[in-house]
Amino acid sequence: MYCLQWLIPVLLIPKPVNPALVNTHVMFMVLYLIGFFLERKPCTVCSVVFLAA
């Protein structure tokens, strides 16, 4: 799971309480995850474990 050590903080980022900011939060998370997977190219097993979490 060494390849996913930079994704652990993603699981700890709280969702915004204000409903108007949810779309921005979702867009940020999607773009961050896409950028991470394109840059780091983690192994398949670690990716499945992260997506299951």
Rank of each mutant, 00 (worst) to 15 (best):
M1Q: 08
Y2V: 06
Y2E: 14
W6D: 13
L7D: 02
L7C: 06
I8R: 04
I8A: 01
I8W: 07
I8L: 08
P9E: 02
V10P: 01
L11K: 03
L11N: 05
L11V: 04
L12G: 04
I13Y: 00
I13G: 01
P14A: 01
K15D: 05
V17Q: 12
V17M: 08
V17G: 11
V17N: 13
N18Q: 02
P19R: 03
P19C: 05
L21E: 15
L21Q: 14
L21F: 15
L21N: 13
V22P: 08
H25D: 06
H25W: 12
H25I: 03
V26I: 13
V26E: 11
M27Y: 13
F28M: 12
M29I: 11
M29K: 10
M29H: 06
V30Y: 15
L31T: 08
L31P: 00
Y32C: 02
Y32K: 05
L33N: 03
L33P: 06
L33W: 01
I34F: 15
G35D: 08
G35W: 01
F36A: 00
F37C: 10
L38N: 12
L38T: 04
L38E: 11
E39K: 11
E39D: 09
R40V: 12
K41T: 08
P42K: 05
P42Q: 07
C43W: 10
C43A: 01
T44E: 14
V45T: 10
C46V: 04
C46D: 05
S47L: 15
V49F: 04
V49Y: 01
F50G: 07
F50A: 04
F50L: 02
L51R: 13
A52F: 07
A52T: 15
A52H: 12
A53E: 10
A53F: 15
